[in-house]
Design a protein around this nucleic acid. Structure first.
Lengths: 147, 147
DNA sequence: TTTACAATGAAAACCATTTCCAACAAAATG
DNA sequence: CATTTTGTTGGAAATGGTTTTCATTGTAAA
């Protein structure tokens, strides 16, 4: 079996499947949906394993995460380097963007208030062009996702 | 009864209690804790009402909200004007900070990708000075809150 | 191999939040 | 003031994403 490309323990079929799924998915995706898609592809992977693996990958910094308004955690493989996301709140279409120099600003602000181990979250949410078209088409057309 | 200072329907005892609680609480606080504190003060308010009211206040822009890593939604009365927060991930101590000109940048980035109705979230998380001291004191001392 | 122990997964537990709905009370009306 | 209207309340039950439990399985080292 091909070794898993991240040092997170043993190489298993399930982890390879999840990596492959992430590799071919451009948008943010939730654990439940990863599980569904793998099952439909014939996998017998368990939901628990999907949750565990995605959580571990995120913790290791291998994938990005965003928390949607409804509380769901979504994941996405990310390119290297600092970046943020512009996410369509309807279809979850995602554009990876480079932020302005937030890092140094965050460090400075935190330091000024005696905070250490600083993280920051910066995400943009909006309505993408195609979703706007659908929405304009008529009311009651927005049944995709909670806002 | 003193009228509720926000146009969100009828003025009730419960809403006044919640407003008062928020008025004297400087830190971010969750719905459950608002409920607990009010009950300990002798109130008979229901948990459902607390959830409903906080949600409505947030929707109306009367209070700020942050989503913690564990999924809990916390609330805090906010000053007017654009600002962000520096939040201790252990004790939830909060410093209100003014961000750099994120708004215009967000608008520009979103526009460039044909997104409309743009929101953004920008929050800093860290460990405050006093929590760092406690943590340094010894392991197993960090039982406050999930990270 | 054999062994040690990490990983898996079905089911159950968790837990913040929401929904249901009958009782209640604020505001409007007569 | 009495009455009606209708938004509000709150206990219980439901929801739903995520985590825990634990017996079983599979990986990789010895």
């Amino acid at each position: 079996m091909r070794p898993v490309p991240w040092n997170l323990g043993r190489a298993t079929r399930q982890r390879a499947e999840i990596m492959e799924m992430l590799a071919k998915t451009a948008e943010f995706i939730g654990a439940q949906e990863v599980h569904n898609r793998l099952r439909q592809s014939g996998s017998t992977i368990g939901l628990t394993t999907v949750y565990r693996t995605l959580h571990a990958l995120a913790e290791a910094g291998e994938i990005d995460t965003v928390r949607l308004d409804n509380g769901e955690q979504h994941y996405r493989r990310c390119s290297n380097g600092r970046h943020h996301h512009l996410i369509c709140r309807h279809c979850a279409r995602t554009v990876e963007i480079r932020g302005p120099g937030i890092e140094s600003w965050a460090q400075a602000v935190a330091g000024a208030h005696d905070f250490v181990e600083v993280n920051h979250t910066l995400e943009l949410f909006g309505t993408c062009a195609s979703c706007r078209d659908v929405l304009d088409a008529g009311p009651d057309a927005d049944r995709w996702m909670s806002t």
